[in-house]
Every structure is written in C-alpha cells, then in structure tokens.
Design a protein around this nucleic acid. Structure first.
Lengths: 307, 307
DNA sequence: GAGGCCAATGCCGATGCGGCATCAGGTGAT
DNA sequence: ATCACCTGATGCCGCATCGGCATTGGCCTC
C-alpha cells in the first residue's frame, strides 16, 4: 500500500472527476485511474461509484475516507516528529565525566566555554566512574570524556581511535581532617607510631585510583597505611576524611574549599603533590557539527592538541 | 511511502538483525537493507544505529516507532471496516415502494417471504410517491420497486432495462364517509343534485393518480366532480374522505379496514372497481447475490415472470 | 444523430525493485 | 596472531511494474 494511493483517493473524493484529480496529482488520467483501482484492490472492494457524475463514494469508500485522512495526517506528523527528534539529538552535546570533575570542574568550564563561544546546543552529561565512562565512550553514547590524566596511567583512550586536548591542570594530594583546634593533620604519611594510618582508598574502577596505583604514590609516601575504606567516588572518600576517618589522596579541585575553610588539611608537603592534567577526549571519527564546533573552540582557546 | 516499509521497520525493531528480519519478511537481506534505507530517506534521517549489535533505534527511530505501529493498525482496521461496510451494503436489500403499499402491503408480504425463504439480509425501504420511486430506481439507489400497475398507465419501468413480477392484486374503488347513522355514502358519483361532488384527487406524481388518469375512471363515472383537494399521498386522501370531505378513489388494500368498520363506504358498486396489479420491478442488470436470491424466490414462489 | 466529456484499456518504454554475488568490518575461537 | 564466521552494505542484472500515449466505449447534450 503506497501512501500516494491515499492522497489519490482524497484528491478524487475532493475533485469528483478522475481527470481533474489526476491533473491535481500531477499524473495522467489513465495512470490515476489505475492507482485508484490499485487502492480498491488493496481494500478489497470498490470505493467509488463511477456511474454518477461527479463520482461518489460507495459505503465502503465513505467508511474508508476518515481512515485515509487520519493515516496520512499521522504519518506526516510522525515524520516531522521523528525529524525533530533526530535534529535535537544531533544538536545535543553528550559528555561523560568522572564524578569528581562533574561536581567541581565541569560546570564553570562549560559556562566559560559557552560565554566565549556562545553555544546554544543542549548538553547531556553522564557522570560515572572512570571505567564506566570509558564504556560510554566505546559505545559512542557520549561524544566527549572529561577526566584526569597522568602519563603513567595508561588507557585505551590514548590509542589511535581517540584524541584529546588538555583543558586544565590539577593535583593529587593527601588530605586529612585536622587535629581538633590545630592546623596539623589528624593522620599523615610521615607518622611512624604503632598503629598504621587508616587509608581511604580508591577502588579499581576509579581513574584517580589508577593514577595513584601507576605512580605508586601511596607506597612512595613511606607511610605505614592500612586500607580502612574504599570507594570509586572521590567525594565519598573526601567526606570520610572530613569526618576524621583516615587519610585520602584527592584532587585539589575537590578539596580546595575544605583546605581554605580548614575542614581538611594537607597531610604532606606540596612537594609530594602529583601533578595531573584534566583532558577532554573524543573519538577521532567525525562527530556532529555542534560537537566539532565545540572541539574546535576548545582546541583554539585553551591549549595545544595532543594525540 | 510504502506501508511495507513500516512492516519492515517494525520487523527490524523486533528482530534486531537485518538478516533475521529480512527472512521474517520473506525477502533477501540486501533488499531488506535497501527498503529500510528507503524508509530512512523518506523520514529524513537514520532510524537505526547499525553500529550496535543488535541494531538499536536512534532517537528519531524511537520517536517513529509508535507512529509506524499506529499507522499500520489504523490502516488495517480501516480496511476491515471498509470491507465490512461494503459487504453490509452488498447484502442489504434496498426497496422502493409507493406509500400506500409501504403501509399496508409491504410488511406482511416481506414477512411471508422471509418465513418461506429464511432471508437474513437487512432491508432498506424508501417510501415515496411514484415519481420519486422511479428516480430512485433510475439512480440505482434501490434494487426493487414495489408499486401498483395497470396496463393503461405507461411507465419507463415497462421498457427494456427493467423487468417485473406480479406479487399481488388490488382494486381501486371510490369511497366516501357514510351518511351519519346509515351505510350509504355521503358522496357518490351517481349524485345528480346541484352542487358537484367534492373530489379528493391524486396529484401527478402519484402512481394511482396516473392509473386513474389513464383509465379515465373519474370521467367515466359520470359524476359531476369538483376537485376540492389533491395530494400525492393516498393515505392523506383516505383520511380526508374519512372526515367527510369528499369522494376518493383508493386502493382496496388501504381502505379494507375502514370498509369493514364502516368508517368508509363504497361510493359505487363493485362493477366499477378498477382491477390493478401489485408488481415488483427490478433493473435487468445483474444485482447483488442476496438481491438475486430474493428475485428468484419471488419468481419461483408466487407467479410468472413478466417483461 | 453528431459532438464532447469522461473513465477504461492496450501498448510501450523507462524506472525501480529484488535477487545474486561479493565486499567490508567486527568478533570470537583456536 | 590468524582464521572463520556473522554482520550489514554494494555492484550488477533481469524482470515486474508503473506511467504516458493513443484509443475505445459509454453517456449526455445540443
């Protein structure tokens, strides 16, 4: 059943004459006649009484008329809706970001970018731990991934089908709640007393955890550390540290406020800070125009492209 | 837009694989692939993400899915409804009958026919005056016409494209209200007193009027008659006569009750009665099966066919 | 009875569709 | 790492179908 047949049908109902309706539909009268016949064959009975002038609808045709009208209306309406949905999806910028960056870095970074380049696209952000973010990127569910990067921590994101740009810098540093009333840490890697320092550690899915493991930062701190709690969520570990539950390595972006307010203090000197980058990753394959515009804006505005 | 494309679309949504959906749809995978592509071209954007296994819907496809489902449902539903409408119309027996026969003759005649032949078809009856009935037959809006017939009253119904069967006999007779308290007519054609007898006459559209005109019954009655009221409706004239307003020629079928009850009396002796037939007319052209069955039943059960 | 209008039909050429064979990308097993 | 297999896409070809043209046949009007 060709939807053109329905248009033909309505044109004939409207015009009342095969030849006039055919002209309106832009085909010859014989072709038009055959298409009407085809529709009648499909329905299974005559729709028009050709014996009267102008041609009139049979009972079957009378019943079929609203069907044809509604079907066409729904079809064209549906097509428009699908197009709109496709367009909206194409213009949506889909980000993935690790949770730490979603909370602190992403909002002002996006705002600055929007202010500078006046993006109007809608934005979708998937906040997850690093392993989940990588899966999202692999499945193409996000166009961009914002995460921490350290040369020692390998990832397939550094491989051929992906590219990245640096968009900021950060530090990983050990923090702890302060000793009550003082500015000295409750726990510190340099402690040598009997009980091990309780460590608030990252589980394997975490990007920061990978960096810490790769740089052997914990081991090299020289501390006797006992894992007391693990999470893949930096903010959870920070909350635990704030509560005096142990020592945690956290990104500066996440604990700057706490350090300023004194609710957390450095547990080691700045010389032990691990410098890390914040990078924006994308698949090398061509993305949607809005995504490409964003990439160009990031590349042009903030740093040099990297592989 | 071919509705088959919508079926293909839903099959692919369901199956998740081009090759499996193609098999289900009874075509090869390449052809199926092209038809899906054709639908996508028509919609104006991709509906499936072919990179995932099984293939998944894009946002546009997700939006289009209910459209495809509803469109197909409405289309098939509408087709069935149209078929049913056509079938019902084809199985409806459409009669036209003059009003006098609609009221008295038609109901018991149809009941007897149904009892004898066990028809189940629905019946439509158009009751109108003779001229309107003829138009109905000419336009094919009725398959059968039930009316009075007299050889002297010509009609195109006696011409080649029509056939007829006698289904009963009747008489036209002059009637009048009785003289109060007696069984003699208030008005009679044999009256010779000064004032003319008021005539309740048929207008030209009436079949009975034509017969009376053709047989010159009124003139040959020898009465001095003054037209006082005309109608194309026999029952109206009878009601007027019952009210003592004059003399009317009426079919026996219509006034038998009145004569039995004495609310009307004969205004002339039975020797002046005009014998008429009740005939069933049809177009010679082949009619619907139920109509042909009815015709055969009438022809076989009650009389001999006529031209 | 002739002419005009209307829809149906026969015929032909071009377009398009489907099938076959093949290609290309990705995955899993050895 | 390689091969086998499964996925969907594509080039090619034959055939069915569709549309246009010319014509027929029916009906109405003048």
């Amino acid at each position: 059943m060709d939807s053109a047949w329905l248009e033909d049908f309505l044109a004939l109902v409207d015009g009342g004459h095969f030849s006039r309706a055919a002209e309106q539909r832009g085909i010859t009268q014989p072709a038009f006649s055959r298409r009407v016949r085809a529709l009648e064959d499909w329905v299974g009975g005559p729709l028009f009484d050709r014996d009267s002038q102008p041609v009139t609808l049979t009972p079957a045709g009378l019943r079929f008329r609203p069907v044809a009208e509604e079907t066409l209306r729904r079809l064209y309406q549906g097509r428009e809706a699908a197009r709109a949905a496709g367009r909206a999806a194409a213009e949506t910028l889909r980000f993935a970001a690790t949770q730490a960056l979603s909370l602190t870095f992403f909002p002002p970074w996006l705002r600055a970018l929007e202010a500078r380049e006046s993006f109007s696209a809608t934005v979708h952000l998937t906040a997850a731990h690093m392993a989940a973010c990588e899966q999202v990127m692999l499945r193409g569910e996000a166009q961009f991934l914002l995460c921490h990067h350290h040369p020692a921590a390998a990832s397939f994101l550094m491989s051929e089908p992906f590219r990245s740009l640096p968009v900021g810098t950060d530090h990983l540093l050990p923090v702890s709640a302060p000793v009550p009333g003082a500015a000295t840490p409750l726990f510190s890697p340099s402690e040598t007393s009997g009980t091990p320092v309780p460590l608030l550690g990252f589980s394997g899915e975490s990007g920061i955890g990978r960096i810490l493991a790769a740089t052997r930062a914990v081991e090299e701190s020289g501390a006797r550390l006992g894992p007391s709690f693990t999470s893949h969520l930096a903010s959870v570990l920070v909350a635990m540290a704030r509560d005096g539950r142990g020592l945690a390595w956290a990104p500066m972006s996440l604990v700057a406020d706490d350090l300023a307010r004194g609710t957390l203090v450095r547990a080691a000197g700045p010389e032990r800070d691990i410098a890390i980058e914040i990078r924006l990753y994308r698949a090398r394959a061509r993305q949607s125009p809005p995504a490409e515009r964003l990439w160009a804006a990031v590349a042009g505005g903030s740093g040099t492209a990297g592989g």
